[in-house]
Simulated scan of single mutants.
Amino acid sequence: MKRMVLALGFALAGAGMSAPLHAEGGLAFQPVAPEGLDATATEMVAALQAGMPAQMAAFEQAGFGFYGALAVPQGVELGPEKLASVANHATPDAAQSAVLEVCAQQTGAACTVIGLLVPAPE
């Protein structure tokens, strides 16, 4: 799982992004309870979510801004290449819709949102 977290910043850099919108305090990760995952995938997502706050500086350096979202496919074995992301959307809802579309296109499976990139609290 640690490899999945570390690979995330590199595997997702540049995916689904437009001009960055950066909060004064930077980015924060807001976990979202995934739907439709088996027990093993749910455990992997929980470990990924736990490691995400430490990845925010790398996301910012890669050009990610708010609002962004991360998603994984349902019903398939998870790995770093299965994660989908988008960033720099006008609203959290827009980011969630976009990441579900990107994830479905990348994997051919229904997907679930696992987290949001939001402005860090001041």
Rank of each mutant, 00 (worst) to 15 (best):
A120I: 01
G65T: 04
P121Y: 11
A110Y: 06
G16N: 12
R3T: 15
M17I: 13
Y67Q: 11
A58N: 15
V32Q: 09
L116W: 05
A120G: 00
G108P: 08
V45S: 05
H89C: 04
A23N: 10
A28D: 00
A69H: 09
A109P: 10
G68F: 02
L100N: 05
Q49F: 12
L116H: 08
P73N: 03
T40C: 14
A120S: 10
A13E: 14
Q105K: 09
Q106Y: 05
A69Y: 11
Y67S: 05
G65H: 04
L100Q: 02
V113G: 03
A58K: 15
E122N: 03
A33M: 11
L48K: 02
V76Q: 13
E81V: 02
A28E: 09
L100D: 00
G115H: 02
G16L: 09
V76M: 09
V5P: 01
G36M: 01
P92I: 04
D93W: 04
G108D: 07
L100C: 00
A94P: 04
E43A: 12
Q105C: 02
L83T: 03
E35N: 10
A71T: 03
P53T: 07
P121A: 12
P119H: 05
P31I: 06
A7R: 15
G26D: 01
P73L: 06
Y67W: 13
G75W: 09
Q49T: 10
G26F: 11
D93H: 07
E60Y: 07
Q61T: 08
L78H: 06
P53M: 08
G75E: 04
A62I: 03
A54N: 07
A19M: 14
V113P: 00
L117H: 03
L83N: 00
G63K: 10
A90M: 02
A71M: 05
G108V: 04
Q55V: 03
A87T: 02
L6T: 10
L83V: 10
A57S: 12
L70M: 10
S85F: 13
A47C: 08
P92G: 05
A54C: 14
F10L: 13
A11Y: 12
C103G: 05
Q106I: 01
G16F: 10
V118Y: 00
A7I: 09
G115W: 06
V5H: 14
G115I: 02
L70R: 08
N88D: 04
G68I: 02
A90F: 04
E60I: 05
E77H: 07
T107K: 11
V102D: 02
L8M: 13
T42Y: 07
C103L: 01
M56D: 04
G14Q: 11
Q74P: 06
H22C: 09
P34C: 01
H89M: 04
L78G: 06
G65V: 01
E60R: 12
A109F: 14
A47E: 14
H89L: 13
F59A: 06
T112C: 07
Q96R: 13
L6C: 09
A41Q: 12
Q55Y: 03
A71P: 07
E122Q: 13
A109Q: 15
G68T: 03
A95I: 00
A11I: 15
A58P: 07
A95W: 00
A39T: 07
L48E: 06
A11G: 12
A41W: 07
A84R: 08
V113H: 08
F10M: 15
E24N: 13
I114T: 04
